[in-house]
Simulated scan of single mutants.
Amino acid sequence: MEKTKIAKLVLNAENCESFAIPMEKVTELRVDDVVSNISADQTGEIQRSWACRRFVLQVSRAFLHQLATEAFHEDGECMMLDERLSQMPDIVDVDLIDTDHHTVTFRLPWRDGEYGETNVAMTTSIDQDRDQLCLVVE
């Protein structure tokens, strides 16, 4: 029996924008210290959610630079995803979607920045030698 694999991940931003990244473009993915939360509503229906304390994603910057976002530079030019991730730290959760189309969503650590819609727990860096963007949330 073949094991299910992650097909893609989706980064979900505070402004409700979502960015799908196929796993073949991902060099590194780590989700550390995952906790499961369980709650129940008035009818007794159980709700499960997940959160992590550290998230690391390294992905092809050339690929990210092909994806337009809803954000704009001051000159009115559309911001590409690599630029948006570097300049707008607001990713709130991540969906992992497997080859059977099952989705697991987990919240990322969040600490309000100067404005409530920015997350100071999120940092990015560029590996120039490998043309990779590294996103860390902790």
Rank of each mutant, 00 (worst) to 15 (best):
135 L>W: 12
93 D>Q: 06
80 M>K: 02
75 D>R: 00
91 I>G: 04
11 L>A: 05
55 F>Y: 14
3 K>I: 05
37 N>H: 15
126 I>C: 08
50 W>R: 00
75 D>T: 01
119 N>A: 10
72 F>E: 04
56 V>K: 05
99 T>C: 15
133 L>R: 01
31 V>N: 14
106 F>V: 04
75 D>S: 07
121 A>Q: 05
93 D>A: 06
70 E>Y: 04
37 N>D: 12
46 I>A: 12
1 M>L: 04
116 G>M: 10
61 R>A: 06
91 I>L: 07
51 A>N: 06
112 D>G: 01
128 Q>Y: 11
69 T>I: 03
76 G>A: 07
81 L>F: 12
18 S>T: 09
84 R>G: 02
100 D>W: 11
68 A>N: 08
10 V>R: 07
20 A>Y: 05
104 V>H: 12
36 S>Y: 11
23 M>K: 00
74 E>T: 05
15 N>K: 11
10 V>D: 04
48 R>Y: 15
9 L>S: 03
82 D>T: 02
12 N>V: 02
86 S>W: 03
57 L>Q: 00
38 I>Q: 12
50 W>S: 00
127 D>G: 08
137 V>I: 15
115 Y>R: 05
60 S>V: 00
17 E>I: 00
108 L>M: 06
58 Q>W: 03
14 E>F: 15
43 T>V: 12
66 Q>N: 07
49 S>I: 09
61 R>Q: 05
98 D>Y: 14
41 D>E: 08
117 E>W: 15
110 W>T: 00
128 Q>W: 11
102 H>D: 11
132 Q>H: 14
2 E>S: 11
51 A>R: 03
